[in-house]
Amino acid sequence: MTVYEIQHWLLTTLGSVEIVKPIMTSKWGWPICESLHFIGLSLLIGTIGMFDMRLLGIAKRIPISALHRLIPWGIGGYILNIITGSMFLVTAPDQYLYNSAFHLKMLFMAVAGLNVLTFYSAVFRKVNVLGAGADAPLAAKWIGGASLFLWTGVIIFGRLLTFYRPFACGKGGATGFLATCL
């Protein structure tokens, strides 16, 4: 299969999901899902970003295992965003599948996922036993730094989606290439 065929298959498959369309095409369905998507983003970057900063050496008197108790809230934000993100995707698959900002966002999400797997398989057991005041090992610092970089990248490319839409959107007619896509 060529990339074009894969994209076309995804377009028809995702586009055939009908259950969320009545919600998403209602007056406030899409805007409310966007708001929830941004709340999920803040929850993820706030808790997981705080944990990453601890790995990097900020607030060393907090035991890493104690701060790890905040991670389920970050995972909650992630799940909220997978749900709302999927709702956008199946409602307007053409706006995403042919959008280079979306491709980069998915790439950054995939690498961020691999980074999480690396953290739990390679360093979690070592850092979880560290007490108050202990410095995280260098490998954990790299993973924490990579996490901050990758999630920030996900936010940037997510926000740029609007400006790389392959088709017109929203209220048209105003001047400037941005005006119709705010």
Partner: peptide, 30 residues
Amino acid sequence: LAYHTIGMGFVAGLSSAVDLRILGVARRVP
């Protein structure tokens, strides 16, 4: 606009993480 979203994530997110601790999540965090 992207910077504005990053800043939103960190200011609302970090502040909320502190709120969660005050409300009883991750009690062992000083």
